[in-house]
């Protein structure tokens, strides 16, 4: 097994390895509806999630058909607006996404999995959750050094059924 490749930050613009510049722009807008920011967590568009999804598609060709199909479906569903998905307001965008979720559940789920994966694999998101990012070599040494208080077992020692002889 080859060591996995360390993820890269998003490129400054233009196209990705698999996704066109248009795809990436659409994906960024979609990600912001799937994972909007709130007071604590960043919006997906403020992370490197879109670039990460492009990289996953580059690494795993089998992921491409359903994810590209989901993006194509979103484009078609938003075609009523002259500016497409980007031209819709928040409710309009959510409506488009819901229609694709209903009409093409497998493709939408594939997109959602990659969106969540890109988002929760992002250093900004992990820091917001209080994780060491990456998990190693830091870990949680303080927690591991806490002692085990054996007095917690006093009742069990006194009352547990003994093992059955055989």
């Amino acid at each position: 097994m080859n060591p996995p490749v360390e993820p890269s930050r998003p490129s400054s613009g233009g196209h990705g390895a698999v996704l066109t510049a248009g795809d990436l722009a659409l994906l960024g807008a979609v990600l912001d509806r799937l994972l909007p920011g709130d007071g604590t967590m960043p919006a997906a568009g403020d992370t490197a999630a879109a670039a990460a999804v492009d990289r996953y598609l580059a690494e795993s060709p089998a992921l491409r058909p359903p994810v590209l199909a989901a993006l194509a479906r979103i484009r078609v569903a938003a075609a009523g607006h002259p500016d497409g998905f980007a031209g819709l307001d928040g409710d309009g965008r959510d409506g488009v996404l819901r229609s694709v979720e209903t009409d093409a559940p497998d493709a939408f789920d594939a997109l959602l999995v990659q969106a969540y994966t890109g988002y929760y694999s992002d250093i900004v998101v992990q820091r917001a959750l209080g994780l060491p990012s990456p998990l190693q070599p830091t870990g949680y040494p303080a927690m591991m050094q806490a002692p085990f208080d054996e007095r917690r077992l006093d009742r069990v020692r006194a009352t547990a059924k003994p093992w059955r002889t055989a």
Binding site: R33, L34, L35, P36, D38, T40, M41, D94, L97, P105, D106, D109, L112, V113, A115, Y116, T117, Y119, Y120, S121, V125, Q126, L129, L131
Partner: peptide, 25 residues
Amino acid sequence: LPLGLALGDGPGKRLPWGAAHHEAH
């Protein structure tokens, strides 16, 4: 870990997307 929770136990069992996502997470 966070991604496993978001993905849940498979299709149909993901955490919701959209405004409700972070609270659920």
